[in-house]
Amino acid sequence: MNHFPEAWGRPRDDVYGAYNPLYLQTTGPKAHTQSPAVTGTSVVAVKFNGGVAIAADNLASYGSLARFTDVKRLRKFGESAIVGFSGDVSDMQYIDRLLESIDIRENYSTNGNTLNAKNLHTYLSKVLYKRRSEFNPLWNHILVAGFDEDKKPFLSSADLLGTTFSAPHLATGFGAHLAIPILRRLFPEETPLESISKDEAVAALRECIKVLWYRDARSLDKYSLAVVTEAGIEIQEDQQVEAQSWAFAEAIKGYGAQVN
């Protein structure tokens, strides 16, 4: 038996075979930033006449485990901007602290020059792009909701690569596949913003969150919903998906235990 110190505490070669040191890789590229750990799923948002509505569920998953069920993924910034986070939760917490320090700095003087949602989105997309260029991305896809400098409703997204995208309604994660078709049906292209009411927007988001809860395995039926208008931010963080019906589940075939 090998009594040299480097073998102490190691599985015995004669029982388990030679130890594969590749696992303890000390050279080569950094790998631990290349995947998220604890994650939040979709964020959905819709612009309406006079503001923006945004929703996300309260779940943080650890792989397939529903690890935390009271996580607030909609973060307020100032009096008229909301940032919705999907992706890595610890990176979200890091960005949240960045936002907090900016907010404190912005309030050193009271002269009314505040960062609006558009400024915030520009800033966050630069942060995300800088980090991806360092091969150390912040593993998030975010939506920023609020107003631009002309006081018009503003909604835009930025992802972990620093890609930005803007549209009257947006969704991240699974929502991009499951919620966007619903929103497109409800608010077809070229629908003027003026014709969408706040209630319609909120109802649409609730519908999207419900469908996501039905079909996205990493989602939760508890969710947060925020509405940004000129009057300020209303945020509700203890919403529940109502009137659930799983009757449709029986008809689903093709995966899971029942293959045919």
Binding site: S109, N111, N113, L115, K118, L120, T122, Y123, K126, E149
Partner: peptide, 12 residues
């Protein structure tokens, strides 16, 4: 302007 897309407030 680059970071925030905002003209810098004069007092700052």
């Amino acid at each position: 302007r680059m970071t925030y897309g905002r003209p810098l407030p004069v007092d700052r």
